[in-house]
Structure formats: C-alpha cells, structure tokens
Simulated scan of single mutants.
Amino acid sequence: MKKILVGAIGAIGAVALSLSAPVSAADLAAHPYVKAPPPAIAAVYDWSGFYIGINGGGGSAHKCWDFVDATGAVTGVPGSLVGEGCHNATGGTVGGQIGYRWQSGQWVFGAEGQGNWADFRGDNTSAVFPADRNRSRIDSFGLITGQIGYAWNNVLFYVKGGGAVVGDKYDVFDIPSGALVASARETRWGGAVGAGLEFGFTPNWSVGVEYDHLFLGHRTIGFTTPAGIAAGSDRIGQDVDMGLVRLNYRFGGYGAPVAARY
C-alpha cells in the first residue's frame, strides 16, 4: 500500500512540474513597444521684418579744389581751371537706420534709409594762393539703398547700393592772420555702394560691420566773404569712404522650425 501511495505522489509531482513550465513562461512580462523618437527640430533664423538700429564709425572724404578763373585775371584764360590741391577730410560719425528685409530661402532682400551726423575735416594750402588755406567739412549725410544678401542661418552677408546726400561746408582762411576769407555751403547728391556682414546673436538683435563708398562727383561752388560779397568759385570734387559698426533690433523672431536633416 505504501509503495502504491509513494508512486502516486511521484506521478502527481511529475505532472505538476511539467505543467508549471509553460505557465511560468506565459507569466513573463512582454517587451514593451517603443515608438521611434520624432525627428529633431532645429530653429532657422529668419531675417524677415522691419528693423531699426544705430551705427557709428569713421570715414574719409577725398576732396580736390580747382580754382575757376572766371575773368582770366589769374590764368589769362577766362573760365579755365587751375588746381589748388587736394586733402582728405577725416573724422567720426554716428547715426541711425531703419529698414525692411524679406527672406526667400537663403536669399535676403531689403530696403533701408540711414541718416548720420558727421565731423569729417581736412585742409591744405592753396597752390594758387599760397597765403590761403582751404578747409572742407562734412557735417551730415544720408543714404537710401536697396540690399541683396545671402544668409547662413544667423549670419548674413549683403551688398547695397542707391543714393547718397551729404552736407558740405567749405572755408578759406588767411594763413598769416588766421582770419576767415570766404566760405560756402552745399547739399550734394550722389551714389552709394557698400557691403556688410551681420550676425544675429538673439532672435531680435543683430550686430554687424559695413563699408560704404559714396560717389559725389564734381560741382562748381560759389564763395562769399563774411560780409556777403562774392569771392570767386571753385570746382570741388569728392568721394567718401566709411567703415561702420551697426546694431539692429528686428521686430519679430525666428521663423517656423523645420525638421533637421541627417
């Protein structure tokens, strides 16, 4: 009887062990499904929008004076020109700009108006009248230009071109006494070209450097004495070169994010 009981218990244990194996495997936790991560999103700097800013720097205006001998008293030929010499009027400038840019792909197009105060001064001794010293000064200028640029995200390189206007003042001094002999003022229009590199260091703020050249041609200027009496004329030619540092604030921010490419 004992042998039969022990054998029955052993058989039951063997069956239990065989059944326990598949049950344990079924109870194991299944591997969870993990969704693939979304593609990385990178913000692309957008140069589009209205902007306003300030600028400052320095410049040099190359000016050449030619005396106009209207009567022939100096040269013997009425209406002839004789060179009095050239000089560079140099100094500093500060001002502001306002404009609008729109971006298409990596190309950036824009229009801008700029106005500056300036203090570019220079002089030379007249080669025609050795007792006189001719002095030139630019005290203001303005630019109205269009722009074409190419952007590498938040770095923009651009070229510009358009019109320029400057405020000029001319003085003739007597060298021995230092007295003012004659003077003249003019507002002169010309052309402008330039190039710049700008870096956007926040979504709205950018800083850059710019070079501009102004073509102002030649113009005959009539001088008067301090008493208002006509004192002859000079044909004065000038060109201006400037280097500026600019800080702009653009209204708006980054454009729509785009999926990064791998």
Rank of each mutant, 00 (worst) to 15 (best):
M1W: 06
K2H: 12
K2I: 14
V6C: 06
V6R: 08
G7L: 13
A14D: 08
A16T: 01
L19F: 11
P22Y: 06
A26Y: 12
D27W: 13
H31K: 10
Y33T: 14
Y33G: 08
V34A: 11
V34H: 07
K35G: 08
P38H: 08
P39C: 04
V44C: 00
V44F: 01
Y45V: 02
D46R: 08
W47I: 05
F50K: 04
N55E: 09
N55H: 02
G56Y: 00
G57A: 05
S60G: 13
A61H: 03
H62A: 15
C64Y: 04
W65I: 00
D66K: 09
D69F: 07
G72H: 07
A73R: 05
V77K: 08
P78V: 04
P78F: 07
G79M: 06
G79T: 12
G83E: 10
E84K: 00
G85I: 11
C86F: 05
N88P: 01
A89S: 15
G91S: 12
G91L: 14
T93Y: 02
G95A: 04
Q97W: 00
I98M: 09
I98F: 10
R101Y: 02
W102H: 12
W102D: 05
S104P: 00
Q106I: 02
W107E: 01
E112M: 12
E112W: 01
Q114F: 02
N116H: 15
D119Y: 11
R121W: 00
N124K: 14
T125D: 15
S126G: 13
A127F: 14
V128N: 06
P130Q: 09
A131R: 05
R137Q: 13
D139V: 11
L143N: 08
I148D: 06
A151K: 04
Y158G: 02
V159S: 15
G161M: 11
A164W: 02
D168Q: 15
K169W: 03
Y170V: 11
Y170N: 13
D174G: 08
G178N: 10
L180T: 13
R188N: 10
W189A: 15
A195H: 11
T202A: 07
P203K: 07
P203V: 03
N204P: 03
W205N: 00
S206Y: 00
G208S: 13
E210K: 05
H218E: 15
T220S: 15
T220Y: 12
T224E: 14
A227R: 08
A230S: 14
A230H: 12
G232K: 03
G232P: 01
D234S: 13
R235V: 10
R235H: 12
G237E: 05
Q238F: 01
D239L: 04
V240Y: 03
M242V: 09
L244N: 01
V245R: 01
V245A: 12
L247I: 14
N248G: 01
Y249R: 04
G252L: 06
G253Q: 11
P257C: 09
V258Y: 02
A259S: 14
R261I: 15
